[in-house]
Amino acid sequence: MTTTPIKPVSPAAPERSETPIIMGMIAVLAVLPLLGVYPYFVMQALCFALFACAFNLLIGYVGLLSFGHAMFLGTAGYASAHAAKVWGLAPELSILFGTLASGALGVLVGLIAIRRQGIYFSMTTLALAQMIYFFYLQAKFTHGEDGIQGVPRGLFLGVLDISKPLVLFYVVLAIFVAGFLLIYRTINSPFGEILKAIRENEPRAISLGYRTARYKLAAFALSAALAGLAGATKVIVSQNASLTDVRWEMSGEVVLMTLVGGLGTIFGPVVGAFIIIAMQQYLAEFGQWVLVIQGVIFVACVLAFRRGIVGEAAKVLRRNL
């Protein structure tokens, strides 16, 4: 082996970069409100898209199915709402505080859940999320069923007046893009390569000397923090933090979004989030039927569209999406 000459390598099929598609996605999102799409709707969808991307980092690239991700969305929501309203922190600091709070909770939950495998991992996250839910239901500062209302927006970074809808929109878009790019970089980093190896075959990764529990914990905390970033931003947008964001239904919704868009794809969670949020918006008049329609979509995805919309497109185009 020592005598084998080292040759320069050029991959036979050069990997096609996703950069142009990412640029295109950002451009489309940036002009949406100018085309008459209701900015509030796009901002909501962007927050859920970031939430779904954070969730997808775990299920798609580490193979960990968290059934309790709403706890990170909601914790950051309450933390940033409290910080902005009670402590009077600036919006960027409130968001940062919420993000860190969820990241810290992610470390704690991760330490407990990571040791379980497969469905036991999922059940553990669900159980812990329910405990967190009951805590918020009882705690004083969350104001129970009322939630924290009238969260102030103020000046973002001291200069951007986010009480103006369009300014708020571009701030939210910037936060989404930053989170999206961080996730994109993570899955294309040396760390991401190890995560994929763990997803593919954990015992083999261990046998190569990787302490996989630490990698899984790091990924879990990162995902929790990014879900928190989404939750904190969402609270600044809607100006209220409520129990809706910590309910188990919310944990289910993010699974649905990711599944519809395409698990383990880069753009799938974004597409899935927009579809589900649009459905809730435009089908609201059907009342309870929205749930039924969502259920049907879920079943259709599981049965026919296993790869989700983006996943199927990627297969047809024979490239990563």
Partner: peptide
């Protein structure tokens, strides 16, 4: 094979770096 070779880098927690 590269996953194994990465071990020689020591810890691979650098999620901010390009692969």
């Amino acid at each position: 094979v590269r996953v194994a070779l990465q071990r020689h880098r020591g810890d691979n927690f650098d999620f901010w770096r390009s692969k």
